[in-house]
Simulated scan of single mutants.
Amino acid sequence: MINKSKSWEEFLENMKSIDYEIKFGKHIAFRHKDKQRFTRAKTIGEDYTEEKIKERIDLAIKNKSNPIKKRVGNIIDISTNEKAQSSKGYEVWARKHNIKTMADSIIKLREQGINSITQLDDLIKKSADDRQDLLDKIKKIETEMKSLSQDMENINTINKYREIYKYHKKNPDDKQFAEEYYSELSVYKIAAKEILENYTKLPKIKEILTKLDKLQEKKNTLMQEYSLNKEQFSDLVQYRKNYENYYGKEVER
């Protein structure tokens, strides 16, 4: 969690360290030691109010603690790249780019304990299997959630037409009533039949909602894992392509 007060205090200390005096009031103001007057931060622009400054400080700290992951670079096949064939300058740049990209790829693989192309292929297969397993689990949860949603709809139907069904049950000879409420009685019977297939007694809506919430939490967690796995798989495949392009095709030769 970001310590907002601390980050704000550090900002103020930094301003003082570069010879700015700070005045607090309705609006915060700053004055450099070489200037006679204070300048309200707000007069510089709406983005320089005390609140906006604090927001930017907090955002900067948050971004620093959660840096954007650098994507895996692509090896350029110089032998087939039209730009490399027509421009000597681009070819030189592409060779340097390939060396750096391949070096970065090897370093990243070493960090994951991968020291051979065989290990990389094994990890790609495992990542693909893990992703399919996650996808199967997500689909299973979605199926369960769909079933629970249908249960909830059936419960609402039963509650809505219960009195009509109870009257019909007590008065089976009332043909006029049965004809008048034929649709309601039909959907009630269908809903009741489906509920009895899954439950020994009519569940409460609250119970269904609790189960749905728990399943949604599980799905969210699995979706995050799936997203990370998908990204990892994409990186591993790109490392493999880089290896093929750099060593297999010998584009640097």
Score class of each variant (00 low, 15 high):
Phe38Lys: 02
Lys211Gly: 02
Glu10Thr: 15
Gln232Tyr: 12
Asp47Gln: 11
Met1Lys: 13
Tyr90Lys: 04
Ile44Asp: 01
Glu142Phe: 00
Glu180Thr: 15
Ile117Pro: 00
Pro172Leu: 06
Ile61Gln: 07
Ala29Pro: 01
Glu46Arg: 11
Asn14Gln: 11
Lys218Trp: 00
Ala178Leu: 10
Asp121Ile: 10
Ile28Leu: 11
Ser116Val: 09
Asn115Trp: 04
Ser86Tyr: 03
Ala178Asp: 10
Ser105Glu: 04
Ser5Met: 11
Asn115Met: 08
Ala60Asn: 08
Ser127Met: 07
Tyr181Phe: 15
Lys146Arg: 10
Gln238Asp: 05
Thr200Lys: 11
Lys52Asp: 05
Lys26Glu: 10
Phe11Val: 04
Ile195Ala: 05
Arg95Leu: 09
Ile141Trp: 04
Leu236Ile: 06
Arg162Gln: 15
Thr200Val: 08
Arg110Val: 05
Ile190Glu: 14
Ile99Leu: 14
Arg37Glu: 11
Gln176Ala: 15
Ile106Lys: 08
Lys137Leu: 10
Glu217Thr: 14
Tyr246Leu: 07
Asp130Gly: 01
Val72Pro: 03
Tyr181Thr: 04
Glu9Leu: 09
Lys52Leu: 01
Arg37Ser: 10
Ile106Val: 14
Tyr48Thr: 12
Thr210Leu: 14
Leu123Gly: 00
Lys169Asp: 09
Leu123His: 09
Lys126Val: 09
Glu142Asp: 15
Tyr161Cys: 02
Leu134Asp: 09
Asn154Arg: 04
Ile208Trp: 07
Leu185Gly: 05
Lys16Asp: 05
Ile57Lys: 04
Thr118Arg: 12
Glu153Val: 05
Glu184His: 05
Leu185Ile: 10
Asn81Glu: 13
Asn14Trp: 02
Tyr181Gln: 05
Lys35Thr: 01
Asp129Val: 07
Asn74Cys: 05
Val187Trp: 01
Leu59Lys: 14
Leu202Glu: 11
Val237Leu: 15
Lys214Gly: 07
Val187Gly: 00
Arg40Pro: 01
Arg253Gln: 08
Ser87Tyr: 06
Glu194Tyr: 07
Lys108His: 03
Ser105Gln: 07
Phe233Trp: 07
Glu9Gly: 06
Lys108Phe: 00
Thr43Ala: 04
Ser17Glu: 13
Leu212Asn: 06
Asn154Trp: 02
Glu46Leu: 08
Asn159Arg: 10
Glu252Val: 07
Lys88Ala: 12
Asp235His: 09
Tyr243Val: 14
Asp130Ile: 03
